[in-house]
């Protein structure tokens, strides 16, 4: 190392250099420097907010001023579980979420399979972009577009008109269609990624061992891609459970989201208690999903 002349004294004294040596020697401190802000924001502000909300489920609201009264009570939770209407709304929403998830999976599978295994690389890249683009954008625009399409004078009834059929779009069937539409890309992409991870050789091995394509699909492909389907279903399920805008635009029935939205202004504790329903369902769902290794497919 004689040919390289480094001014060692200046190196040692440069503050940036000293800092990097310091962090190298104390990886824990480096870690906490990195983590401080994210933990403060997500851990303290966000999780803290959630806890405050959950806690307020145990307070009461003054019926005249809507101000919170900090007296511990289980009445709100009792009301959620014992009032038939709210139980019905919860079941209706969960059933809707399940049906939407099912429809999304059924519609997503052929497209994802085609993208992953049939399409040429060029077409595949185009399709990925084609599915990604509507995923991120314009939730409200999409819901609004369907409101227009499903209306009595809209495109659907125009197309059905010659057959003498009319479709009441502003119904739960219509809402099911809209939800399926809204969350479909969230299902396509994880399934596509999951299918692409399956090595071709496994499918060939299955065929070599005498399995027909149906058997290969149900015994090899489907089990391997299942975590990806679960990953997609996290979104289709969770997004349906908490939505209050699409139901307002399309259906006249109440859903968990619309009830919370209606109540939070005057009865925050009850709204918070009702919000526990989707939270508990989703957290349980997430825990199961993590067990099934679905997070790797998000």
């Amino acid at each position: 190392m004689t040919s390289v002349s480094i001014d060692e004294a200046s190196l040692r004294q440069s503050p940036g250099r000293r800092l990097s040596t310091f962090f190298y020697r104390h990886p824990r401190l480096r870690l906490w420097t990195l983590l401080a802000l994210p933990v403060l924001w997500l851990g303290v502000v966000y999780i803290g907010s959630l806890l405050v909300l959950l806690l307020s489920a145990f307070w009461t609201a003054d019926p005249f001023t809507a101000k919170l009264v900090h007296e511990f009570t289980l009445d709100n939770l009792r009301r959620v579980f014992e009032t038939p209407v709210y139980r019905d709304v919860a079941f209706r929403t969960i059933r809707m979420a399940a049906l939407v998830t099912l429809a999304c999976a059924v519609l997503a599978f052929p497209l994802a399979y085609y993208m992953a295994r049939i399409a040429s690389p060029r077409v595949r890249n185009l399709l990925v972009v084609a599915v990604l683009m509507p995923l991120w954008g314009s939730y409200l625009v999409k819901a609004y577009a369907w409101r227009t399409i499903l209306s009595g004078e809209g495109a659907i009834n125009w197309a059905l008109g010659p057959f003498g059929v009319s479709f009441n779009g502003y119904s739960n069937t219509g809402l099911w269609l809209v939800f399926t539409y809204l969350w479909l890309p969230f299902m396509v992409l994880p399934i596509y990624a999951g299918l692409e991870r399956i090595p071709q050789s496994l499918l060939e091995a299955s065929a070599d061992l005498g399995a027909r394509s149906m058997r290969t699909f149900f015994r090899v492909t489907l089990p391997l891609v299942f975590p990806a389907v679960v990953a997609g279903s996290i979104f289709t399920f969770s997004l349906t459970l908490g939505d209050y805008i699409a139901p307002t635009l399309i259906s006249s029935d109440q859903f968990i989201g619309t009830v919370i939205y209606r109540e939070y202004g005057t009865a925050l504790p009850f709204a918070a208690a009702y919000a526990m329903v989707p939270i508990v369902v989703i957290v349980a769902y997430l825990l199961v999903a993590r067990k099934l290794k679905a997070f790797e497919s998000l």
Binding site: L42, G43, I47, V52, L53, L239, D243, I260, Y264, A271
Partner: peptide, 27 residues
């Protein structure tokens, strides 16, 4: 826990996140 906390804001229904943040902002 950290990986969970990062995903939570998009995994939880938006109305829950909205309501929680509103309560914190207000209080």
């Amino acid at each position: 826990v950290m990986t969970f906390a990062v995903i939570l804001p998009i995994a939880l229904p938006g109305i829950v996140t909205g309501l929680a943040l509103q309560a914190t902002i207000k209080d």
